[in-house]
């Protein structure tokens, strides 16, 4: 397989890998590193890759595992990133009316979800994968996927409604 052929296979979903990595790792730089790592791994194992019926699903699973490992080693190394869920009162009050700010707010809510729910929300609501694909990628039972997805959606809604009720935006 040449580099060009490889890129043609990988191009349609490399953004998805990156977005998944970013949803899990939060930081853009780390997500970029992770994506590069995954692509390099795929390239190194390109002979194996030809055997997989669904390279995209395989790559997504790889990305998920890679990022979860990263998060785990970060936690054990006490290097866990602290995501501040609070916003600077003064400036944000003025900006709250802006759409951009409310999107950031949703982003913050999603970041606060458990990894599993974040993962499923990303795969379904952002990438629009079918349930069968998600089940395969995450190696989960259909009901488990739906339950986690429903919990994630409801959790986001709760916080969003709360914000809407008390906030200005």
């Amino acid at each position: 397989m040449t580099q060009n052929e490889f890129m043609q296979i990988v191009n349609p979903f490399k953004d998805k890998l990156y977005r998944l990595a970013k949803r899990l790792l939060i930081s853009s730089e780390e997500a970029e590193d992770a994506t590069q790592e995954i692509l390099m791994k795929l390239w190194a194992g390109k002979k194996k890759m030809e055997r997989y019926a669904n390279v995209e699903a395989f790559a997504m699973t790889m990305t998920k595992n890679f990022c979860l490992d990263r998060l785990k080693s970060k936690q054990s190394g006490n290097l866990k990133l602290v995501h501040s869920n609070y916003t600077d009162g003064q400036t944000s009050l003025q900006k709250q009316v802006e759409v951009k700010d409310s999107l950031d707010w949703v982003g913050k809510i999603v970041e606060g979800l458990p990894e599993q729910q974040r993962l499923i929300l990303q795969l379904r609501d952002v990438e629009s994968y079918e349930f069968e694909e998600i089940e395969k990628m995450l190696d989960m039972k259909p009901t488990a996927v739906r339950v986690a997805l429903s919990r994630a959606r409801k959790a986001v809604r709760e916080q969003l409604l709360e914000k809407h009720r008390y906030g200005i935006g």
Partner: peptide
């Protein structure tokens, strides 16, 4: 239903994000 607007807007925006890094393939 106004409260839901940012949720779906967020999803639409999130899917537009692109990977801009290099792909350093070693031949």
């Amino acid at each position: 239903l106004e409260a839901y607007r940012p949720l779906f807007a967020y999803f639409s925006e999130a899917r537009d994000e692109r990977f801009t890094g290099q792909v350093p393939l070693k031949t």
